[in-house]
Design a binder for these strands. Structure first.
Lengths: 244, 244
DNA sequence: TCTTAATGTGTTAGAGGTACATAATGTACC
DNA sequence: GGTACATTATGTACCTCTAACACATTAAGA
């Protein structure tokens, strides 16, 4: 086997379309939504023989003329009608036998969308929301992909103000807390949660109240526009804090 | 364009080797080392026309018969002779024009190795260590890949005891602190550093002292064998701590 | 009007982090 | 041999952040 295949044009040319350019590349999207106080994910019933009756993530092969990072956007537009969604690459899975039909390497992305959004139109009736907690297995290695993306989501959620992609524009602190609890799978203290959220300075008080709730209505908030990362600590302090 | 290409065997068969299985897949390794109180990375001079005189990361095309995650191990064995190295997948880069010779998508890994290790044998004389701080640009999009991996390393370093892969077996606390400072690019308080490190309970005191140093010798330590993740907090507390 | 259930706010004790001071030990030079 | 110096080793005070918890407020419904 030649060693530095990447380095010489001549070698590339020889390898092309023969033994090396022989791997399929796909993307799979873990599309998270939030409904009924549950974290959900968009799945489709697999119609592969090998996975009859099982569900799988939404994905597609990457086209030769599109950037890798464009592909999941295309999948999302095709399947949900949503543009401008939050999307993040997580991991690439390249096990030899992960796809029964041949060598297909897949790059996994996760996405956060607002289930209530009026533009959301799931075009195919085979596509449905499933509660993440109820999913035991999926087609291919999609359960592994889901778990990996969920773990990443849980990390991200604590560092960046991304959960708001899952909520409608106006929300109460209780709704926000319910969402965090659904994602993290734990209960949080209401008073400490409120304190920490206000410290982050992510929210704007809308001076509006909830309506049609069977209890004392809460204040409504929205995410600050032009949300900058505001650090309460200096860069050096942050590093110091994080080190070791 | 057919939509669910992944779903039907028949469609897969048709697409195979025609328009879709037409993308090259490679891996690129950001191999970090530590020498002279500097974080370094292993580079090779590119011999592509387009990048004459520039350096690039070590990489290779993924073979059709090997797992994606196996490929970087192979590259490392070929180029450094090292087995059992610390290796972690970081990100996959799939821009359309990132490779001048055609469509090549690459998955980036970073690796931590001990430069002093006796088995380390850089087989090719074109491969050399470069101080990370001195690298201004690289061939292809390799500077972006390097920066991405460095950012990930800086995150990881604070959560997991991985820096020890860069050190020889026995080391002093001063050496360990120098390493952290080199990776993070900041200075740390010596006394607080010692305190936090001992709290982590990662180290074993060897009851040996440095030798041949032009000052008071420090104690030597090594990484605890069978290092388990020991949480001083319960899972719930950790979640609580991390949330928001 | 009273009960109930949720929202909104404050307080306290403890843990962890930062900044800083001091003693101990070995080298190098006079 | 003695002294200055650099570095290791350890301790302390202050501050911040967090977890745990108590109480008052507001609206709905009987």
């Amino acid at each position: 086997m030649p060693k530095r295949l990447l380095l010489k044009n001549a070698e590339i040319e020889k390898a092309t379309h023969s033994e090396y350019f022989n791997i399929g590349l796909s993307v799979d999207c873990v599309i998270f939504g939030y409904e009924d106080k549950q974290l959900k994910v968009l799945l489709i019933e697999s119609d592969l023989e090998e996975f009859r009756g099982m569900y799988s993530l939404l994905g597609d092969l990457v086209r030769p003329s599109e950037d890798l990072d464009e592909a999941p956007y295309r999948v999302l537009i095709d399947r949900t009608g949503l543009k401008d969604v939050y999307l993040e690459q997580v991991h690439t899975f390249g096990g030899l036998n992960r796809h029964p039909s041949g060598r297909v390497v897949t790059t996994a992305y996760y996405s956060l969308i607002d289930v209530q959004h009026h533009e959301l139109q799931i075009t195919e009736h085979e596509v449905h929301w499933h509660a993440v907690n109820d999913i035991k297995n999926l087609a291919f290695d999609h359960k592994l992909i889901l778990d990996t993306c969920l773990a990443r989501l849980r990390q991200q959620v604590m560092e960046e103000p991304i959960v708001f992609n899952l909520l409608q524009e106006k929300f109460s602190l209780r709704q926000l807390q319910d969402l965090y609890e659904a994602i993290l799978g734990i209960e949080l203290d209401r008073r400490n949660f409120r304190k920490r959220i206000t410290l982050k300075n992510w929210l704007v008080d809308l001076n509006e109240m909830e309506e049609d709730v069977p209890h004392r209505p809460g204040k409504l908030y929205k995410l600050r526009t032009q949300l900058r990362r505001e650090y309460r600590m200096s860069d050096k302090q942050r590093m110091q804090k994080l080190v070791v």
